[in-house]
């Protein structure tokens, strides 16, 4: 594997190399723009000057072999890297043109706008209702109990879970099935009415049927929300996403419309990964 110096990488940056990726950015308004984003864990560099735009109202899939920095990247978008000791960030992350890492940005406020769903469903050990009501409560989004009930119900409906749990709202969230738990976590995130939802391998702990439901859900949500999803499944990326970005060893190798990436990848590493020759 060829190693590149930082200067090298900047010059031969992916965006510059592939003009129509850049053109795509210009056509649609970007929710997130990342500029020269580098992340270090102590001395180890996990991301090396990433330039990537995430389009508003679209589903962007992040793919790449294990350890290439997808999770690291996605955590930068809502500053979930902050509490990791020794984690240092360089470059810029802009949300609607606003620098997420600027001194006057309150991560609490940011995370209310940029929700996140994790690899393993992590419902709180509280009732289903309490799980969904948690976000609106802490953010003071409901003035009355009725309003809160309303938010909970609407969020569960959007997460396509309401019909399954409407009689079990007071049961612990942990008593649901894995797929239901993950949709509960999505409902929990939707309840604070975010602009963006980040999903880090949301289906990797689920069976195929539950996975299909989540994929369907993502499909329904797209348009209303900007969604960034990390996945190890090429099929999933191909099915749910509009745009795809391929990461490799901390570099962003290639990005573009999902169709293009999967049919005519430009970089041989992308091709190799997609066709399963390495990964």
């Amino acid at each position: 594997m060829r190693t590149m110096s930082v200067a090298d990488r900047t010059r031969s940056g992916v965006i510059a190399e592939f003009p129509d990726a850049a053109a795509g950015t210009a056509a649609k308004p970007a929710a997130f723009e990342t500029r020269e984003l580098s992340v270090f864990y102590g001395k180890k560099q996990a991301l090396k000057g990433i330039n990537l735009d995430i389009d508003k109202g679209e589903v962007t899939a992040l793919i790449g072999p294990s350890g290439c920095g997808k999770s690291t990247y996605i955590r930068c978008l809502n500053r979930m890297n902050d509490p990791i000791p020794g984690c240092r960030i360089e470059g810029k992350v802009l949300l609607d043109g606003m620098d997420v890492y600027a001194a006057d940005i309150d991560p609490v406020e940011l995370r209310a706008r940029v929700g996140m769903v994790f690899q393993k469903p992590n419902p709180f050990p509280k009732s289903v209702w309490e799980n969904v009501a948690y976000g609106p409560r802490i953010h003071g989004l409901a003035a009355t109990r009725a309003e809160l009930n309303d938010i909970v119900e609407r969020s569960l409906q959007r997460a396509a879970l309401f019909d399954e749990v409407k009689d079990r709202l007071q049961e612990p969230g942990t008593s649901l099935s894995g797929g239901q738990q993950q949709r509960l976590c999505i409902a929990r995130a939707l309840a604070v009415d975010p602009d963006v939802i980040l999903m880090d391998e949301p289906c990797s702990a689920l069976d195929p049927i539950a996975t299909a439901k989540i994929e369907e859900l993502i499909d329904e949500l797209s348009g209303n929300y900007t969604i960034v999803i990390v996945t190890h499944s090429m099929q999933q990326a191909a099915r749910v996403s509009d745009m795809t970005a391929f990461f490799h060893l901390g570099d962003l190798v290639e990005t573009g419309p999902t169709d293009t990436i999967f049919t005519t990848p430009r970089d041989e590493r992308t091709e190799g990964y997609i066709t399963g020759r390495f990964g």
């Binding site: 309150d106 003071g140 604070v192 009415d193 209303n224």
Partner: peptide
């Protein structure tokens, strides 16, 4: 959606001072 998102953002912002205190 847009209006609701704006009002959500305003509501969140209104709580921040109290919460940080």
């Amino acid at each position: 959606m847009a209006t609701s998102a704006t009002s959500t953002r305003a509501r969140v912002a209104a709580t921040l001072k109290r919460r940080h205190r």
